[in-house]
Amino acid sequence: MSRRTLLKYGVALSAGLCGVSQLRSCKRPGRLKAFKPNELDKGLVVARGEDAAALTREAVQALGGMDRLVSRGDRVLVKPNMAWNSAPQYGANTNPQVVAEIVRMCVEAGARTVTVLDNTPSDNPAPAYEASGIAEAAREAGARVPFVRPDGFHMLPIPDAEAVTAWPFYERVVFADLCDVLINVPVAKNHSTSRLTMGLKNVFGMVGGRRGELHPDIHRKIADLNRVVRIDLTVLDAYRVLRRHGPSGGRLEDVDNSREGARRVVASVDRVAVDAYGATLFGMAPGELGFIKASHAAGLGEMDLSRVGVVELTV
């Protein structure tokens, strides 16, 4: 083969590859993930006790068990809050034991893959993944813990939006061909802008774009983002509760570790109910929080706890 021919073929082949690659990245986003049909109890479970992993297991068990949600062969995405380069005892990230136990239960229920990820505010997610202890614990429990792909966010329109009409969402969270079950595992914290952050606000870690722009009018925007993501189960970690200087924290004095104020795990398929209960941990009525009211109004769940069956159990 002459040099000229080789060059010709080489150029043609790479042009073709680039073209295909270009076309594939331009393709229309696939079908959106729907709620996974499940036989879980529709109420809310609060498990209190000393062992975070046991609390998590018992809370999900009381809803009927993970196998009523996760079927054999499912691809499960677990979304904790691991946004901060901060050790577990500071309560800025979800408790690694809670995340690991969720992963274990999904694996036991026969999930094909369990993926744990978060879109951290930092461009380099490694410090937060490691410092939170979640990456290690989840890997040990059998999950994959990848970083988000910077080009994996897709602009999706938000139906019936009130404050934000379209926003880029992460592919693994919203597309049916990448995810069968979405489990949200937030931590309950004080938050300077939205006052509290729990399950509904944790959706910020499932989206991309310039998230700072979401902060003005944050309450209605939280509800709007939640209109798109189909969260099948929310497990709120209130084992340690960061009561002041959230969401980043950094002082043990600000972390409530007491039996009265913390040491519990809350689970429900109703994400608004979970946050409504979480609000009471901070001495607030659910109606005081704009994002709970807006999410309730958007039909995402019930905020009146008296209309939700609340089961309390001690482990």
Partner: peptide
Amino acid sequence: AADCNCGVCEE
């Protein structure tokens, strides 16, 4: 938005 609150820096 009608809301002028931001607070990302403090957060």
